[in-house]
Design a protein around this nucleic acid. Sequence first.
DNA 1: GGCGTCAGGCTACTCAGCGGTAGCTAACCC
DNA 2: GGGTTAGCTACCGCTGAGTAGCCTGACGCC
Lengths: 217, 217
Amino acid sequence: MTEDVRRSPERAKRLPRAVREKQILDAAVEVFARHGYHSASMDEVSDVAGVSKPMIYSYLGAKEDLFLHCIRREAGRLLEAVQAGIKPDLPPDMQLWHGLRSFYGFVSEYRDSWTVLHRQALTVGGPFAGEVDALRGRAIELVSALVVSAGSRKGLAEQAEFSGEGLAAALVGAAESLADWWLDHSDVSDAVLASWLMNLIWLGFNDLVEGDVWRPR
Amino acid sequence: MTEDVRRSPERAKRLPRAVREKQILDAAVEVFARHGYHSASMDEVSDVAGVSKPMIYSYLGAKEDLFLHCIRREAGRLLEAVQAGIKPDLPPDMQLWHGLRSFYGFVSEYRDSWTVLHRQALTVGGPFAGEVDALRGRAIELVSALVVSAGSRKGLAEQAEFSGEGLAAALVGAAESLADWWLDHSDVSDAVLASWLMNLIWLGFNDLVEGDVWRPR
DNA sequence: GGCGTCAGGCTACTCAGCGGTAGCTAACCC
DNA sequence: GGGTTAGCTACCGCTGAGTAGCCTGACGCC
């Protein structure tokens, strides 16, 4: 059997670096989302990417670097998506409404991104948690500004500023957790999700049980 | 007793099984909280517990079993603490208020328990996530019942039941996330935390910017 | 009091999986 | 055709889960 005509039929075609990097990152996000940082193996990433392991090391560095690249890319995408959805000249409740819809739109379109960002990155200490915290910080800032501006329109500036960040953190947390919950109960549309949240946080239980409902105008 | 002959200074004293099991579980919770499931090593657990590795395997089984034991014990404690704080004959908002205070009381007293339950257990697939989901399910049930009862008092039973679970999930999520946020911003008291949440979810932003405030009666 | 027995306890090892790399091969460009 | 770079196979070494086998002290029983 000296007939070794089978010269690697699977050898990948030569492609420019940027394309490979994207393939690798996509694969990495998928694998990290499925297994988490520690359980994910570089072998599986290379497998899913259709590229051999040394390529990953040569293009994107060691495992930590790779994960960091994933987080940065996905965080950027998410922030961009949400900010693109906000119309700054609308009243506060409508801004919130659009922001929420964009957020859930992103989560539904990029489930893996959200999983990596929220469920995985936080549990690994080190540089990753900081990265995600920065993202959440941006979100809290956005919402906080909304609360403060809504408050100061009514002449309650200082009170709104005092509890603004806490409220914003709670709201951001609620939205995040609802997104998590959604991953396991996907039979609800993103619009319904956003409107639940709007009703809860804009009107509150008290109004709800009185029969009030918030609606986009 | 007089002359206690110190034969092997490093060898641990013989203790009944129940005591050792508690030591091991305490150590395991601490280590899992610090590093997460995968990064935690059995060696470190045995070190912190002051007991050698084979003891852990003999008493509590392999790593997975150990983690499961931790989750079960901490989940039980948490549920117990919250239920102990609720007075079933109070009106819905006061029930919620007391439930929240008990919850944050627990988190502040047992930070590691909460970290393991919420931040770590969810990211490891397998049997663990199910265990935690069960706990959250119980919480959602509790809150959901609250919403429905509040609604049906006002004759809005069917509407409250429709969105009750979603709202409850959002609220439970908000409480959880605020607890997480708190771990990194511990300069707020648990009562303040609970009252932020009460104001947010009971009254809503809309009332808040009008200057309304919810207070325990 | 001597002594057997078994649970509490340990040291020191095996072995697999995975992060990371050395060094080779082949395609593309001029 | 020759240099450069995309790409690969095959390996190394370490870390950490899990175990074999031994030691020892407390207690019951003659």
